[in-house]
Amino acid sequence: MKVLITGIHGFVGSNLVNALKGEHDIYGVDILTPNKEGVVKTFSWHDLKMHAVPEMDVIIHLAGKAHDTKKKLAAGAYFDINTGLTKKIFDYFLESSAEKFIFFSSAEGTFNEISNEILTEDVIPTPIGPYGESKIKAEEYIRNICYTIGRMSKRVYILRPCMIHGPGNKGNLNLLYNVVRKGIPWPLGSFENRRSFTSIDNLCFVIEGLMTKDVPTGIYHMGDDEALSTNELIGVMCEAMGKRSRIWNLNKEVMEGCATLGSFLHLPLNRERLRKLTENYVVSNEKIKAALGIKKMPVSARDGLLKTIRSFERKR
Rank of each mutant, 00 (worst) to 15 (best):
M1T: 12
N15W: 04
N18I: 00
P34W: 12
K36L: 15
E37N: 13
E37P: 00
E37K: 10
V40G: 02
S44T: 14
M50C: 12
H51R: 14
M56A: 10
H67L: 11
T69K: 07
F79E: 07
I81P: 08
L85P: 00
K87V: 13
L94I: 08
E95S: 14
S96G: 06
G109S: 10
I114Y: 12
L119R: 13
T120M: 07
E121R: 05
E121H: 05
I124Y: 10
I128L: 14
I128C: 08
A138M: 03
A138G: 04
R143V: 02
Y147N: 14
T148E: 15
R160G: 06
P161T: 04
M163F: 12
I164W: 01
N172T: 08
L173A: 06
N174D: 08
N178R: 13
K182T: 10
G189I: 12
G189Q: 11
F191W: 08
F191I: 10
R195D: 12
S196D: 12
S196W: 08
F205K: 10
I207F: 15
V236S: 06
G242Q: 07
K243V: 00
R244S: 13
R246H: 09
R246D: 02
W248K: 04
W248Q: 01
N249Q: 12
L250C: 12
M255R: 03
E256F: 00
C258F: 15
A259L: 05
L269E: 10
R273V: 15
A291Q: 00
K295A: 04
M297F: 03
M297P: 01
V299F: 04
A301N: 06
A301V: 14
I309Y: 11
S311P: 07
E313V: 14
R314A: 09
R314M: 09
K315H: 09
